Simulated scan of single mutants.
Amino acid sequence: MDTRKRWRRLTVWLHILSSAGWMAQAMALCVMLSTGLATDDPAVRAASTTMSLATDARLLAPMADVSAFTGIMLSAATPWGFFRHRWVLVKFVITLVQLYAGIFLLSPQLQQSAVTGPVPAQVVATALMASAIAFQAWLSVAKPWGPVGRRRRGGNTGPAWVFVAAVLGGLADLALALVLGHPMPLLSIALIVVVLAVRRSWTVAPAGGRPAPGRIG
Rank of each mutant, 00 (worst) to 15 (best):
K91D: 02
G181Y: 10
A76H: 05
T39N: 05
L74A: 05
A101I: 12
A130F: 02
L53H: 14
A46Q: 05
M51F: 13
V179F: 15
A77S: 12
P118G: 09
R8F: 09
L176Q: 09
L110F: 01
P211E: 04
Q112W: 04
L174T: 03
F135N: 05
R58V: 11
L196M: 13
W145R: 04
L191G: 02
L171I: 11
A134E: 05
G208H: 02
P120A: 07
L29T: 11
L110W: 00
T70C: 13
R84K: 13
L29A: 12
A160Q: 12
R210Y: 00
P213E: 07
A137M: 15
F104R: 08
S52I: 10
L105I: 14
A142N: 08
R151Q: 12
L37N: 07
V88G: 06
A125W: 11
G170Y: 03
W202R: 06
Q112D: 10
L128G: 10
A101D: 07
W138K: 10
T11K: 06
D56K: 08
W80Y: 09
V204H: 08
A28R: 14
T3N: 11
T157A: 12
A20C: 14
G169L: 05
D173E: 06
G217L: 12
S107L: 13
L105K: 01
G208I: 02
G154I: 09
G149Y: 07
T49W: 12
T70P: 03
A205W: 01
V119M: 07
S67D: 03
T126A: 14
V123D: 03
